[in-house]
Computed example of a mutant assay.
Amino acid sequence: MSPGIPDRRGLWVAVGAFVIWGLMPLYWHLLREVPSLQIVLHRAIWCAVLVASWLTLRHGRGWLREVLARPRLAAMLAASGVLIAANWGLYVWAVNAGHVVEASLGYFINPLLNVLIGVLFLRERLSAAQWISVALAACGVLWLTTRYGDFPWIALCLAGSFGLYGVIRKFAAIEAVRGLGVENMFVLGPALAWLAWIELGGDGGFFSLRWGGWTDLLLVMGGALTAIPLIFFAYAVRRVPLSVVGVLQYIGPTLQLLLGVLFFGEYFGPDRAIGFGFIWIGLAVFATDGVLAARRRVVAQQA
């Protein structure tokens, strides 16, 4: 296969991952009776169980010990585990608290924030088009802050936590699914202890008649819903050019935004439309520049 040409199966797997992420608000909405903290704790626990079981079946029981024998890598994955758990927690809370639109804004901003992180911390250089895209996104956030009246802290915290997570995973030399498994093992112990404390205190409801068996099943399956798109994504990025993945990733926040407005009935008036418009124009500039740069590299390789 020529460089820059996506594998068809990888392309559809990537689309599947982003569609699952985009439709997640519907799933968390089914669990709206469960406190957001408990949803996140169950999500961490069952994701850890699922991924660890899969890795053990595939690589044997030594997969975790091999990583722990490298203290620097283990510390990086512990930090990335905390960041992704915080990201999960804020996202689930935002969905069930009626902030789906603002949560989608965070994932629209994230690619541009990654560019800015690359400049500030990794000494990367931006093209003129990338500087324009970052400036447009900044204008959109500033507009939303001054005209809509509320600082978009949910969006910025979601983008910031996921952006820092991406930086750590960029330098953590480990395969994607194994890295996910190790991250979750670091989170598993605190999550189990916290959830046990809640259950023993009488504020939980797992395996009881408080929420019902259907809710218990949904909580368990939330772990699979966390792991499956990440595994899909890890499969796809090895077979699809990153420039294509960069464009496809906007499927997720676009679906979230549509759900927020059309299904959850959240406000999306002119002030929000203008702010989002600045960000979307910035994303269009960013995506177009990325695709054109990828095409130039392909032409140069074929010359």
Rank of each mutant, 00 (worst) to 15 (best):
S161C: 13
W93M: 11
A293W: 04
A300Y: 13
G118K: 05
M185K: 00
F108W: 09
V187K: 01
D289M: 02
G181N: 02
Q130K: 10
R58H: 07
L142W: 11
L209T: 13
A155S: 06
F108C: 04
G222F: 06
F264G: 03
S133A: 10
L37I: 14
A97I: 01
V261Q: 08
S104K: 06
L156W: 15
F207D: 08
F286L: 11
L258I: 12
V82G: 05
L192H: 07
D289W: 01
V95S: 05
G160A: 06
A135V: 10
G118T: 02
D203C: 15
A128H: 11
L257P: 04
F264C: 04
L225N: 04
G140Y: 07
S208I: 05
L242T: 04
F264Q: 06
N110M: 12
V167M: 12
S127A: 14
I20E: 04
W28C: 02
S80M: 10
G98Q: 08
N110W: 03
A173N: 15
D150W: 10
G179P: 15
F278V: 12
I45W: 03
R9G: 01
A173H: 08
R65I: 02
S133D: 05
P270M: 13
W194L: 15
L112K: 03
Y165E: 02
L192A: 06
A86I: 14
S133F: 06
Y107L: 01
R125Q: 12
P3H: 11
Q256P: 06
G222T: 05
H42S: 12
I84S: 03
I274W: 04
R272N: 13
W143V: 09
V299A: 11
A287P: 00
S2Y: 03
A284T: 09
R295K: 12
F186Q: 01
I231P: 01
G98F: 07
W214G: 14
Y250H: 10
Q256F: 09
Y165P: 02
L105M: 09
L218C: 13
M24T: 12
F278P: 05
R70E: 12
A103E: 10
P229R: 11
V34L: 14
L68V: 15
E183Q: 15
F206T: 03
V298L: 09
G213Y: 07
L105P: 04
A173G: 12
R61A: 11
V19D: 01
E175K: 00
H42Q: 13
A173Q: 15
V261G: 04
A52G: 08
V177L: 00
T226I: 07
L255E: 05
Y148S: 13
I117P: 00
V67H: 05
I168P: 03
G118I: 02
L113I: 09
A138H: 13
V101D: 08
F268Y: 05
L77K: 00
F278G: 07
P229M: 10
V119E: 12
W214M: 09
I251L: 07
A293L: 15
E266A: 12
I251E: 02
